[in-house]
Amino acid sequence: MDFLNAIVALSNFVLIPALAYGSQLALGALGVTLIYGILRFSNFAHGDTMAIGTMVAIYATWALQGWGVSLGPLPTALLALPVAIAVTALLLLLIDRGVYRFYRGVKAVPVTFVIASIGVMFILNGLTRLFIGPDDQRFDDGARFLIHPRAFREATGLAEGLSIRTTQALTVVTAILVVAALFWFLRRTRTGKSMRAYSDNEELALLSGINPERVVAITWIVVAGLSVIAGVLYGLDKSFKPFVYFQLLLPIFASAILGGLGNPVGAIAGAFIIAFSEVTVTYAWKKVLTYVLPDALAPEGLVQFLGTDYKFAVSFIILVLVLLIRPTGLFRGASA
């Protein structure tokens, strides 16, 4: 019994949250890694792209809620996704036309692109605060739980109640669908293959008649989709706060670099490693250990290795270790 209770507690506080968080990071890291693979720079504006895209989704959700539209148990924000993705894609294409295309034209070195992206980051950051403000926004609706802890306790008789929130389940399912669609696109379609070819060998792609501007435009559109979905899922699961989205940049980059920049499979693996590390290190293990260990060995303290306020230290340490030991990442991406 205690063992089962321990598993349920572990699921509630470690496995399920880390799975959801890892899915959100994976979608973010895929965007970063695609931009790195094709445009060949680290996009520091990615966190704020997620923020501004989510902001558009929130406005659209509020409008839909105002009109009385609802998806029943699912959050209305899902219906707002297409609008938000379209607006964000348009915005990214405009930014590319106004900023990055110039630097491509003069064949600027990657660090110039990075600095330009920091400029874009500040602008997007400012725009988000100007419109929706720096405060927390909640926009989730629909059923709160897929599996309610009380119902679970009554059904099983366990002391611990398993809890799976709708947003957590939705996050994981959506991430799986999006990743499957992305990989199908990259591996099976002519356009997707041309993007991989361009990322692999730019010169030869040109000789083969692949139009670089088209590849770049499609990349931004795909990135808009990934970052809006990642941002909305994160916002539904936790809450929307522009500054938090900016901070997500660190775990997202840590994921992409850990997996090997430019390698999509690596980005996903990296995201889950980061998410599980962060959650396990900041979780107070007292409850689980009390269930599992004999009474004599039951811990007195919280058995928490790091306060949740310091969770970003985990990403940071992993990032530093990867750069020191294996800069190309686990899956050997284009060297960082």
Binding site: K193, S194, R196, A197, N201, A205, L207, G209, I210
Partner: peptide
């Protein structure tokens, strides 16, 4: 290329991460 020239550069003349078949498909991109 569209006029009928095919060029094989000396270096970096394949897409290393793409499969052989995908390399050929990319050759026929136009």
């Amino acid at each position: 290329v569209a006029k009928g020239m095919g060029f094989v550069p000396q270096n970096r003349n394949v897409f290393p991460a793409l499969t052989v078949q995908e390399n050929l498909e990319m050759g026929a991109f136009l």
